[in-house]
Structure formats: structure tokens, C-alpha cells
Simulated assay, not measured.
Amino acid sequence: MEDHYSVSSPRRILSFSKRRRATVYFQDPNDKAAGFGVSGEHGLKTSEVYGFVGSITTIVATVIFLVWAYVPEPCLHSIGVFYYPNRYWALAIPTYAMVTVVLALAFYLGLNFLSTPPPTSLSTIFDEFSREPAESVPLTEGDDQPIEPISDISIDKINILMFKNVK
């Protein structure tokens, strides 16, 4: 026999079962023992409100822009809209915005190139945080090997490791 829907309590237990039994438990917001307070104690976060308002504003502004850019003038006059900016700006504003973004990225890239030292500079290899490896004292057979202090690997060791088999 199939058990259709059984609801014990809308707040505590909601059980749906057809052939297998699955149970979903909901916490009671008035239950202080569970560690959760009353829902009135936790309000909306300001970031949530700003995000919601920002998303709604973006959607409304996009719809207004598309109506202004694509709806013919007689349709706008029929709904009572007589004053609006020239349609030239429907293309000019997005174009100016895209050119501004591209120029800002190019300017940022250029500033990075100007502030980077040339490849032949020793400052690309050594700086104030470079550490030479400390001289290790050879230990006898029975002693444990200590962990070597953190240091940079010198460029000649790197070259030997990478290019020793290249002829």
C-alpha cells in the first residue's frame, strides 16, 4: 500500500514517501536548545540589501536603456514620453565606456612594464629578502639530520640542475 503524503507538523517534520521513506527535518526557530535564536535576532545584512537593490537597479536601468535605444519615436510618444536624450548617445556612451576600459587596461599594463626592472638587472635575482644558504656542519653517523634553514637556491645551482644534460 502506498503512503501518499504525511505531514506531522509544518515546522518540525515533513515526510514524503512513495516507495522509499525520506524525511526532512526543519528546526523550530523558537527552540532555544538547538543553539539558534529567534529569527528576529538575525536581520538582513547590509551587503545583502545593497546587492539586491543594486541588481534590481541594474535590471531596471538596462530595460530603460533598451526601450530608449530601440523603441521607435511614435511608440514613445503614444505612451506619453516626449523628452529623452538623442539616440546618438545610445551608441556613444557604450563606445566611450569600452574605449575607456581598454585604455585603462593598456595604461595599467604600461605602468607595470615601466616599474619592472630589465631582465639583465641583478634585482630580478637578489633583493633585500634573499638569503644565502648557511654552511652546514657535517654530522657523525648516529646524529639526526637537522632541517636546513630556509634559503634561496643560487642561480648557478639552478643552471646545473636544469642544464647539466644539455649538450
Rank of each mutant, 00 (worst) to 15 (best):
S55Q: 07
F36N: 01
S47P: 01
D127T: 02
F52Y: 07
T62Y: 10
T124M: 00
S78G: 05
L66S: 15
P10I: 07
R11P: 02
G110S: 12
S55F: 02
G142L: 07
F82T: 04
H77D: 04
I64F: 15
N86E: 08
S115L: 03
S78W: 00
T58C: 09
T57A: 13
F36V: 02
S151C: 13
E148P: 14
T100S: 09
H77V: 02
A92K: 05
Y96L: 13
T46E: 13
A61C: 15
S123D: 03
L66F: 15
N86H: 11
M1K: 09
A104M: 09
V38F: 01
P119L: 00
Y25S: 05
S9K: 11
F82D: 05
E141Y: 10
S15E: 08
A34F: 01
F52L: 12
I158S: 11
H77C: 03
R87E: 07
S130A: 12
T120N: 00
G43T: 06
L111S: 04
S39W: 01
S136H: 12
K167P: 05
L109Q: 05
E2W: 06
F129M: 01
V166F: 05
G80W: 02
V71T: 15
L161H: 04
S39E: 02
K157T: 10
A104S: 12
I158A: 14
S136Y: 09
R19M: 06
G54S: 08
F52A: 14
Q145E: 15
S17R: 04
V24A: 15
L105Q: 13
S15T: 08
S151Q: 10
L103M: 11
T120M: 00
P146Y: 05
F129G: 02
S15H: 03
E2T: 13
L161A: 11
V24L: 15
G43Q: 08
T57N: 09
R11I: 07
H42M: 07
L139C: 14
F126D: 03
F65Q: 06
V137Q: 13
H4E: 15
G40V: 02
S8I: 08
R87N: 10
V99N: 08
Y84M: 06
M1G: 13
V53K: 09
E128M: 01
F16E: 03
K167N: 08
Y50W: 08
P10G: 10
A97I: 11
P10H: 08
R12M: 08
P118W: 00
V166T: 09
P138A: 10
D28N: 15
V49G: 04
I56F: 06
S78H: 03
V7F: 13
A34V: 02
V60R: 12
C75D: 09
